[in-house]
Amino acid sequence: MEQNIQDLLEKAPELLATYGIKVALAIAVYIVGKWIANLIANLLLKGLTARKVDLTICTFTRNIVYYALFTMVIIAALGQLGIQTASFVAIIGAAGLAIGFALQGSLANFASGVLLILFRPFKIGDFVEAGGTAGVVREISIFSTILTTGDNKTVIVSNSGIMGGNITNYSTQPERRVDFTVGVGYGANLDLVRKELEAIASEDTRILQEKGITIGVAELADSSVNFAFRVWVNSADYWAVFFDTNEKIKKRFDSVGIEIPFPQMDVHLSKEG
């Protein structure tokens, strides 16, 4: 017993020198690595905040980056102690893969939410068509976007559904073109039709005359001659001008005797011997 203790005491300096250095290196790796991880995460947070990214996404992203780097620091520190870390890496990788498969829908929505806020294809208050629905944007969250439709229904659309398709933003441009297709009968006086459409456009102060007015024969259809009638308005006046102009066209054409045809079929019966 005494011999064993004596042998241990004799080897103590050697063991202390060997393992003391490893412990010191492991502690140094841990302290420095944790400081670097925290520094990188905070720099990322400042960068996202400077770009006015949503605070929830900033904090969430910062925490993900920090804990990912901190995990790497722990593995590096354990490696300095001589512990085989390959198994730890394999376990962490397998766990990450399993979590990724389980949460792939949520992760896709989160990534799409980050892209929506970074690239800003629309903002709160815009009227958009996206994700199979149309409405005013009320809220952009991490995983979904909330729209209010024209009939005041609330629609919650997943962010991945929005980013995976086309986004039409009707609010970005200050001016919009209103397109009408005006069908008249083949017996109508085309010059008179043009004159009446010009009068309708010139009398409406909401129509931007300086942007030009387009009136032309667009199609010789089966039952009508179709005019393309296009005017420019401020975006806020779009629907008001659209509805009012359709009504004016009908009333004005009726007053001057211009026929607006409707689809019909003539059936001829013949009597055989």
Score class of each variant (00 low, 15 high):
A86F: 12
I64E: 00
L55Y: 10
A90W: 04
T59L: 05
I91Q: 11
N63C: 04
I83W: 02
L78T: 03
S87D: 03
T71V: 04
I57F: 01
A86M: 13
T71H: 00
A98H: 02
I92R: 00
L69V: 02
A94Q: 09
G100A: 15
I57N: 01
I92K: 00
A95F: 11
L78F: 11
N63E: 01
C58F: 02
I91L: 09
T61F: 08
I75P: 08
Q84K: 07
C58E: 09
F60R: 02
G93M: 15
F101A: 06
F70K: 01
N63R: 07
A94Y: 10
A102G: 13
V89G: 07
G100D: 08
V65Y: 00
I92H: 01
L69F: 03
I74M: 07
I91S: 13
L55K: 15
G93F: 14
Y67N: 13
F101I: 08
A77W: 03
Y67F: 14
T56M: 14
I74A: 06
L78H: 05
I64D: 00
I83S: 03
I64N: 01
A95M: 11
I91Y: 07
S87F: 09
M72Q: 08
G82I: 00
G100V: 14
A102S: 11
I57A: 05
F60Q: 07
Q104L: 15
R62T: 15
A68P: 08
I92Q: 02
T85W: 07
I99G: 10
T85R: 02
A77S: 10
I74R: 00
I74Y: 03
L103E: 03
G100R: 01
F88C: 10
A102T: 11
T59R: 05
F101H: 02
G82Y: 01
I57T: 06
A98R: 04
N63L: 06
Q80E: 15
G79W: 08
D54Q: 13
D54H: 12
I99A: 14
A86C: 06
A77Q: 03
S87P: 06
I99S: 12
A90S: 11
A102P: 07
A68M: 12
A77E: 02
A95C: 12
T61H: 08
Q84H: 08
V89S: 10
G96L: 14
T85G: 05
T61I: 15
Y67T: 07
F88V: 08
N63F: 02
C58G: 11
Q104W: 14
G93H: 12
L103P: 07
Y67A: 10
T71N: 10
I91V: 15
F101D: 03
L69P: 03
T85A: 07
F70D: 03
T59S: 09
Q80T: 09
T56K: 12
I57P: 01
I83E: 04
N63M: 06
F60D: 05
Q84I: 14
A102L: 11
L69Y: 01
Q80M: 14
G93I: 07
A95S: 13
T61G: 05
I91F: 05
Q104E: 14
Y66S: 04
T56C: 09
C58S: 12
